[in-house]
Design a protein around this nucleic acid. Structure first.
Lengths: 365, 365
DNA sequence: TCGGATTTGTTTATTGGTTGAATTATTTGG
DNA sequence: CCAAATAATTCAACCAATAAACAAATCCGA
């Protein structure tokens, strides 16, 4: 949003342009040539060639056979993201399962490990030790494939401070839990809805600005603005579950009355889908009025109920969103299934590599 | 949020570092020396000297007598923003007055012109013609001072599209109004709450992330995240006045029921301050739960009533914000008075110069 | 079958911009 | 009056992107 406070030197220019080239390849449907990248980015062919050489040497890009020929001229060498380079370890702890996955630079899920078990019976230490076992398995599987784990990220259903401390995860019974290194890797911890939103962002055809709402026992939201996650001042954004919909309504476990969670949580949806849709519609109208977000993605337990919920939500949106006549709000179910958060966690790792390839190249020497 | 899509060349490096130096001077309480800037930014003294030379030659910085000496060594030459360089023309049209002001690079208001008159009696064309007269006066006054207007911005109470078209301004009776050049300058048009929020951002001691709420006949909000205004996908963010507080409550002119505006608009505040405070508290709790914003600034008609409203609002915030125990929400009245929007408009212009001095230097040749 | 047209990718000299070290400038303190 | 200290400038070196020329590999038409 504002100019960064850091000086820029020549090496920053190279870092930026390396990222630019890598992202251009990543966002291309086909296998772009160096010349195509030059055209798309505005860099010269010479510069692109030099940058691509670095990226290939660093194992982030590979050269492929030319795409189907068309017209005269020297055939182009196709470029693609390397599937043997760095990979991300995505982890998730939720109420009734733990899971780990390995996602490579292309976004493909290479390995999945799931342990189904009620986490509420375990102490945080025990749960994390079991998750550590999954992480070790995943790491071994990744390395057998020639992949190098660039990092690990963990999705938890709770409030996570900026430094990774899990302040409170009510449905796990966690309070002020610090996540240790797992499988020898430092772990970035984030809220499950945030990471699921990131996963959704990666899915095909995703818009750069949307709200992801995840209905589980609690309700969380991930706010994606302009292709980036908005975390808020302290990292606690997206607590849509405690937006008030009926000021004097049902008491909530948080101490307030009429929170959305009491009308559109998992049990409430099962008990009265129409009420849930209406309550969701009221809360989503508030979000749209405040943030002017044109797309809302429903995930978690909402996804299978999407068709049932849609009319009720849309009715409220149409009635309560001031700009509904000027531009409609699009509602759609999540593209990823129940593992969106884990996928998003892994994506967050590879995203960091794609956004700063220079950092990866430097540390990979 | 995400890496920009544009290539970076050497000239971008210089543009960035010019902005960095200029902002460092602007944010310094005292008059920093070149060496101090080098220390603060991480650039070398040689680079800072070269950049400062450009900025002085371009009329953006001036060299002053050294600050009070301390210790041995060659005395430093103090640097400060030029008060004779570019200036911003801030304009405002509201229900019962028009206004124009000239703000120089240091943020000082150099001239003010106000025409008090009910705008609802005027057609948009007539109103804009009268505003044009104010703009011409302001321009003449600025030029008599040796100032050069770098641009103009206009605050209107309504929805403004990204291209500057005023889609609807209900209290002015405007519909799809295009604002022409005024005083020979192209005019950037924006929502009044957005610009007032920017003005507030410039005020001393302002936080980089806050919500500005402006209570007039309607209620608007400006969302400032990380030192920048968040405008939303189509520029229509901040419509807090139509957030639902009582789903089956009073009918609103927008067609919905129970909008905040019906409980905390100007008349409602006068009629029942306690209800207004409670309704505001409910809506603000939604904002804080969603965006994790730690500071709320009350402006417009709320500012004079601040002490009266505060307890009621805080009670709701405390009850309804999930993270209220982890970190309190600060409530404060706006620092700027009724002219916040006009000041913010002028600030927006000089902000654009401060964020891109290279652009100014290039066009000023 | 051969040569021009065409497009891709590389090479090379040039330019813009920062860096670091040396140099000059200007003050305080003994 | 000279040494120490701090500020600012000068200059050679370096890094990265650019533009233009060049090399490579294909298509197409005669």
């Amino acid at each position: 949003m504002n100019a960064s406070r850091a000086p820029v030197r020549q090496s920053s220019v190279r870092a930026h342009n390396l990222a630019l080239v890598l992202q251009t390849v990543a966002n291309s449907a086909d296998r772009p040539s160096r010349a195509a990248i030059a055209g798309a980015t505005g860099l010269t062919r010479a510069t692109v060639s030099a940058l691509v050489d670095d990226l290939i040497a660093g194992g982030l890009l590979i050269e492929l056979d030319p795409a189907p020929r068309t017209g005269a001229g020297r055939p182009a060498a196709g470029l693609a993201l390397a599937s043997q380079g760095p990979a991300g370890l995505g982890l998730e702890i939720n109420v009734d399962y733990q899971a780990a996955c390995v996602v490579d630079l292309t976004g493909a899920v290479r390995h999945r490990f799931v342990a189904r078990r009620d986490q509420r019976l375990l102490s945080p230490g025990t749960a994390l030790a079991e998750l550590g076992d999954l992480a070790v398995q995943a790491r071994a599987a990744a390395e057998a494939d020639g992949l190098v784990l660039a990092g690990a990220a963990l999705a938890v259903p709770g409030l996570v401070a900026a430094d990774g401390l899990v302040r409170v995860a009510p449905n796990l019974g966690w309070l002020d839990v610090r996540v240790p290194d797992l499988a020898g890797l430092p772990v970035t911890v984030d809220n499950e809805a945030n990471l699921a939103a990131l996963g959704e962002l990666r899915a095909d055809g995703a818009e750069p600005t949307f709200l992801y709402v995840s209905g589980e026992i609690g309700i969380g939201a991930g706010i994606v603005l302009d292709g980036g996650l908005y975390r808020g001042g302290r990292g606690w954004s997206g607590e849509i579950g405690h937006v008030t919909v009926f000021p004097d309504g049902r008491p909530c476990r948080c101490g307030a009355n009429g929170c959305l969670e009491q009308y559109a949580g998992q049990e409430a949806v099962a008990a009265d889908p129409d009420l849930a849709a209406s309550a969701l519609g009221i809360a989503l109208s508030a979000v749209v009025n405040l943030l002017d977000i044109g797309v809302v993605v429903l995930g978690g337990a909402y996804a299978p109920e999407f068709d049932r919920l849609r009319p009720g939500i849309e009715a409220e949106l149409h009635r309560r969103v001031l700009t509904a006549d000027l531009a409609p709000v699009t509602l759609r179910p999540a593209a990823l299934g129940s593992e969106a958060a884990m996928r998003g966690a892994a994506d967050a790792v590879i995203r960091s590599v794609r956004e700063d390839p220079a950092g990866w190249l430097a540390q990979a020497v």
